[in-house]
């Protein structure tokens, strides 16, 4: 998996490419944790080029949501492919997390 981090006007945008699975999720967890540690509290995760996610990836999202809540931060998820979005729905994550269709919408809502 490739993670591109782009920080603009206090918003950290993580663009994921490839597969978020048991092997790659610790890396995302680390990158996000270090951004939060450095004071970032507005996060967008762009799923546009993410082809696959498993429960290991969902756990990172759950943990990030909890971490940000404690700091009164904000997390937005955007541009998910159908099968990836379905995994969020099956796990019941979609009713609790703001998932928007496009990156532009995420930027305007954060």
């Amino acid at each position: 998996m490739q993670i591109d981090l782009d920080t603009r006007e206090n918003v950290s945008v993580f663009s994921l490419k490839g597969r978020l699975d048991s092997n790659t999720s610790p890396e995302l967890e680390e990158v996000i944790a270090s951004q939060i540690e450095n004071g970032s509290s507005s996060l967008i995760i762009n799923f546009e080029n993410l082809d696959y996610i498993s429960s290991a990836g969902l756990r990172v999202i759950l943990k990030t949501t909890k971490d940000l809540k404690r700091r009164e931060g904000k997390l937005l998820l955007c541009a998910m492919q159908d099968y990836v979005k379905e995994v969020f729905e099956i796990a019941g994550f979609d009713t609790f997390l703001p998932i928007v269709p496009t990156m532009d919408e995420a930027i305007s809502k954060i």
């Binding site: 498993s54 429960s55 290991a56 969902l58 756990r59 759950l62 943990k63 949501t65 909890k66 809540k69 995994v87 099956i90 796990a91 019941g92 994550f93 609790f96 997390l97």
Partner: peptide
Amino acid sequence: LDVGRPFMERLEGGIGIHL
């Protein structure tokens, strides 16, 4: 897995077998 449970109380385990 109780998918209706408040998100902040969700445990990180049990998601895989649920899927």
